[in-house]
Design a protein around this nucleic acid. Structure first.
Lengths: 235, 235
DNA sequence: ATAACACGGATAATCGATTATTTGCTCAAT
DNA sequence: ATTGAGCAAATAATCGATTATCCGTGTTAT
């Protein structure tokens, strides 16, 4: 039989609003805008060569994910995360993820095992910093890091829980990027390796405990000695 | 100092897109549309007397909350939840909420205690069914039920976790409304009362355990003997 | 009879322009 | 000097119309 299927989409053939959404989302996550920066529809529309409607749709979606704030009749802006907000996200992850990891370790099939191995391998051989002692993780490492943590949980087989992880991770990454002292340069390599080992050994208790510690230590490293400049919103 | 503040908004004075969004959201949650029904922008715009742009914005937001599906170039539709999907939501709640309740019971202040009491009192004196043996919970009871469960968790003081609860609750309610055999008519009054007692007695272990059982039994009641007609999506 | 193709209506996506709101500024009045 | 009213520019929100895409239907060639 030949290709009764839809043609494998030529990349330029999806909706404009989708492309603009992805670009906007990535730009915010990449840190192209500073917290508090206004996201002006007209400006964005001109830059990207599209109409206001598509930019507006993209902005509404971005707001829905917590990657932008909106004030009625006053426009959109990049959110300014307070230190407090970051701690709340970290606490939420500590509260949710260990339990999900337990389920994942108990349920994951052989395909999941393979993906965990691959994700850890990729993470282990990705240099955390672009060069030398930069204070920013490399984009490649950040992505590998995300994929590793997500893959660990994917064995749970529950898309609702994974979506929860996605939202918390996204919010946490954005908050971390703009937190007081950026990345601490902490070496989590050993922790990741032990996490992988416990997961593949099907030791749910150990894996959950390791993840709790991993999240706690990461949060502590980012919090300790953080000389935060301004907690713009006391919320 | 006089009123340098913005005037407390006269209710008719907010954005159209916001009003349309609320109406659309409520209509879907209320069950005004059946799963699979198309949500046609033109139709909605004509009905509500607004332009396409505002309907479109509302639809995009609704999709972001999982209350509608979108197929590019084919429009929006009310999602058809499978039985499997409902079970996943229920499992996610069992995974997350007991841990949050623990935090809440350990941290909640006196104001939280008062709100828990008020929420339970309201729930206890709201009739579950509009009249007789209807198969649908009354809107009033559903809302009181939601507020009770949310208030129980609010002592945790973590908006990230509460937002997670909100999303799961919303998705669960929509899925339940259209599940195979609707409401089971199960009497959860005693469970709610015991939950309140354990929470106010600051017994975190008991509260978490009671919540786990409550969620498990509710899910079981809705699942047992469910003669589900079609699992539209094998995902 | 069946399958490939072309046409046409319906609807989604996008655009350009209009209306409404906010904000900053000027300037008079205290 | 400070306060407040009153423009004016900037920008958000909304609209009406245009363009692109999908889907059913009818036609034709095998």
């Amino acid at each position: 039989m030949a290709m009764t299927d839809h043609t494998p989409p030529p990349p330029g053939k999806q909706m404009l609003s989708e492309q603009v959404y992805v670009r906007l989302r990535d730009a915010i996550m990449r840190g192209d805008y500073a917290p508090g920066d206004a996201l002006k529809p007209q400006e964005l529309a001109r830059q990207q060569g599209v109409s206001l409607a598509v930019v507006r749709e993209a902005l509404v979606r971005v707001v829905g994910e917590g990657l932008a704030d909106r004030l009625p009749n006053r426009g959109f802006a990049v959110p300014s995360f307070s230190d407090r907000r970051w701690q709340q996200i970290a606490e939420a992850r500590r509260t949710v993820e260990p339990a999900v990891l337990r389920m994942s370790v108990e349920r994951g099939d052989v395909d999941w095992e393979a993906r965990v191995r691959a994700a850890h391998h990729r993470l282990a051989r990705t240099p955390p910093y672009p060069r030398g002692e930069s204070e920013h993780y490399s984009e490649a490492w950040s992505e590998a890091h995300r994929v590793f943590h997500r893959t660990l949980l994917e064995g749970c087989g529950n898309p609702v829980l994974l979506e929860t992880f996605d939202r918390m991770w996204t919010a946490g990454e954005l908050a971390r990027r703009w937190s007081a002292h950026r990345d601490p340069g902490r070496d989590g390599v050993g922790e990741h390796r032990r996490l992988e080992e416990a997961a593949l050994a099907r030791d749910a208790d150990a894996a959950a405990e390791l993840l709790t510690r991993h999240l706690t230590q990461t949060a502590a490293a980012l919090t300790d000695g953080a000389h935060y400049d301004a907690a713009k919103r006391p919320e």
